[in-house]
Design a binder for these strands. Sequence first.
DNA 1: GGGGGTAAGTTG
DNA 2: AACTTACCCCCT
Length: 745
Amino acid sequence: MPTAVSVLLPLPLPAFSYLLPFEQEKPVLGARVVVPWQAGVRTGIVVNLEEVSATKALELKELIYPLDTEPFILPKHLAFLDNLAKSSVSPPGQILASLLPIGLNESLVHEVKAVAGAKVEHDLSDWSGVQALSPNQLDFYRRQGLIRERVRIEEPKVRVLLPFKKPDEALKTKAKANQLQALEWLWEVERLESGAELARQADVPESSVRTLVKNGYAGYEDVPAPLPALPNYPPKQLPSVAIYAGENHKAITGGYRAERLASLIPLLQGDLKKGKSVLVLVPEQFILEETASYLQSLMPVQVLSGDLSDAQRKRFWQELPDNEPLILVGTYLATLAPLGQLGRIVILEEASSSYKLQSGPRLFISSALRLLAEHLDIPCMLADSLLSPEGLNHVGEKHCLYLPSPERRLHIADLSEQSNWPLSSDLIQVLKQVKERGRRAVLLAPRRGFSAALGCSDCTWLAECPNCDLSLRYHQDKRQLSCHQCGFNMAIPLECPNCQSVDLGAMRGAGTQWIAREVAKHLPDFPIYRYDADERHDLSPLLEGEPGVVIATTALLRHPPLPDVSLLGLTLFDTLLGVSDFRAEEETLRLWLQLAELSPNARPLTLIQTFQPQHPLLDFMRAKDAEKAMKFFLEGVLERRKRFHYPPFADVAKVQISAKQELTAQREANWLATALKLHIKDKGDVLGPSAAPVTKLKGLYSYQLFVRDLGHKGFETLLQPVQAYHGSARVRVDVDPRDIGKFLD
DNA sequence: GGGGGTAAGTTG
DNA sequence: AACTTACCCCCT
């Protein structure tokens, strides 16, 4: 019986079947194979093999060539991929494309040869490069069965300068002293990447090197590229901790980031001793570097992230199965890393919103890896300053290790009674103390730029984005108004377009520029730094202990910690809570806990400016017994989530309907909501549709609705009407949205 | 009748 | 995702 091979390509499509040529060995599951695709070839992964009838075989195109004899993706991962595809309602190929960092886009040497006796227009009697044929001809010959094809991975080559001849008498004249010097140096170092480099190193003009090459003493050659070095990070000492996680723990919360990691060390060492590797997942590059720095002096560590070059990732992937047990610290790109003896998965900062992939299948990587651990039947450890309610519910209270939380000093400044906006008199007073004592302070503003808006003081006019329902952010330094969503920029108008008043000024929330200006007013001659996406000042004087104030956005959380910060100011607490998401409070609390990481060795006074000093969240932050407060907070969240049927007690998917015309978006959203309600019946419910929080964005009007899966039936079936939708609006789905108002591109 | 743009359909 | 085909508008 002929064999059909199902091949998954890194495209947003399901797997496709190809016929295995009768003379070819059956490929193993998870191996890479090259298959014909449109008028060329593509590399995919073998996900299934099945016997088919001879008639069925006739309909299939032939597989071209296997690239591997061993699985490139572990067969255990294939079922996991399939499961992820179903739960995220996206094609399996799309999951593969977003999780596999290498291997499927290799450059290939593709050759063709005419079958014996075939009449073809070209001379294809021997293997020749496919570029001799036009794509149409290739397709035609394929269909007629006139050619055979073969491929191999193109070895990465680099062009180098090599010495060809030893210096001879002809070079030993005074006029050719430079050439002689260069050639002798080249023989000394054996090879160099360019003639220019030789000229630099031998300290001769480039023309001398050119002459050497012209006269055949040296020349360029393509040689196999050397293996790239794998990254290394400067070692760092972990703090000591009093409690360690054991086998019965499934989550760690509280403490500093480094303490949570330190509490895991005996567990990790135990895994390695048992011959098991551990996958340590991180949400961002800076945590990857920090984690690798801490671990590498204690145990064998490898890293994988988007910061590695293609060549580095390739080397990493190839060597991984042969390595001794190790700790792999990686971002989501390490999900499918072929660790043979994987014994545990650790998810650091498990609740981090950075784990939400912003495109493709929009996976939430924490959930995906919890699923992987279940598939592999290995333990999974969660760690975060404040566990996600989902995480806590999953592991259960009694499997949770609480580390003592850092002690905090908190002062709340009520902005409603203040006249000197955006700084309260309390903040000004402590800032003055910081200056007098030559200390360091960090002020966090809710946004970059000067202010949230520019408006007219005489009427109600506010500058708004022409593409979005948002006010334009005022950037004083560039004398510009810009939209932080769509990137629209314009110059500041001279007068109000509404009432022609010239009294235009900053309105609403103060950004880093505004705060910096106010601080400068109150603290003349004190060093002021800014740290946001627009302006990243060099903070090394502060690292060395010089005094100063940093005005920053949360971008500062990705900067190495500053020593002995004595004041931490949150200039507008309210914006954090203003987010229209059921996770807003939880995220705010987590941010508050993360702020302690800005200066872990100090105990800075945290000053919070707010218009709502009675907000219940502040009570949790003020509580003396932090551990108890956190437990109480999470219990409350879970209780409400249960009562109102929110995750983890129901699965939620967002459906976004967008169109250029607002009415179209609204009509199609209503239509889709009705279709969904009829389809879902009592298996779940449909909330909405309602206009998206920012209804017009990037020129599109969006409506959104939420589908709740109350019986864990899976969105694969519940969202069927969405899958089948072919109307005039653009529809996007986000399963498990982490920010319910966020626009889906 | 064709250049230039977008929308819709197909890929094994 | 990448690519082809269909279709529309505008201009010569």
